[in-house]
């Protein structure tokens, strides 16, 4: 069984049939070649397959492609080149917050959904908000340093991370 869907993916309109049991991660990676969403735990724990659907982070390993109908999807490929990505990427590079890189696009996308959240005022609230994204290499300190650096500077706001 398949379903006709219409969705906006990285700013482009997609209209086509998807299998009813097709996972979003497979749709993105296999059908569209958007490899930045990485497969790992497959049970919505590690967050490495995170993409934004209507601005909110979802685990694409546990989201059906047919449920995209009418929705707006952003993957890392759609965020690259934006002022937000540049500011955040600079901070990640400056703080050496990238190691193997497998979790990195997901970290960036989750951060995008968070960094204009006014409730995130300190490191503790940011840690809580980011807890759905695992990283085995960095031990998180570097990523947090990068995020705090950007949050504190107001540069994200300037770059317009707003949804």
């Amino acid at each position: 069984m398949s379903t006709m869907i219409t969705a906006t993916i990285n700013g482009r309109r997609f209209r086509g049939e998807v299998e009813d049991n097709e996972l979003l991660i497979d749709f993105l990676r296999e059908d569209l070649g958007l490899i930045g969403a990485r497969q790992s735990c497959e049970v919505e724990v590690c967050g490495s397959c995170t993409v934004l659907v209507d601005g909110l982070p979802v685990s694409s390993c546990c989201y059906l492609a047919c449920d995209l109908d009418g929705k707006v999807v952003e993957t890392i490929e759609g965020v690259v080149g934006t002022a937000f990505h540049e500011v955040l990427a600079d901070a990640f590079v400056r703080h050496a917050a990238v190691q193997c890189g497998y979790c990195t696009p997901a970290m960036v996308l989750t951060a995008k959904s968070l960094l204009d959240d006014e409730r995130l005022t300190d490191e503790e609230s940011l840690r809580r908000a980011m807890r759905g994204n695992l990283c085995r290499c960095t031990g998180y300190r570097a990523i947090l340093d990068a995020l705090m650096d950007v949050m504190g500077s107001g540069r994200v706001a300037e770059a317009g991370s707003g949804r």
Partner: peptide, 8 residues
């Protein structure tokens, strides 16, 4: 770092 941040 840059290509990892870009997802490529």
């Amino acid at each position: 770092a840059r290509e990892k941040l870009a997802g490529s």
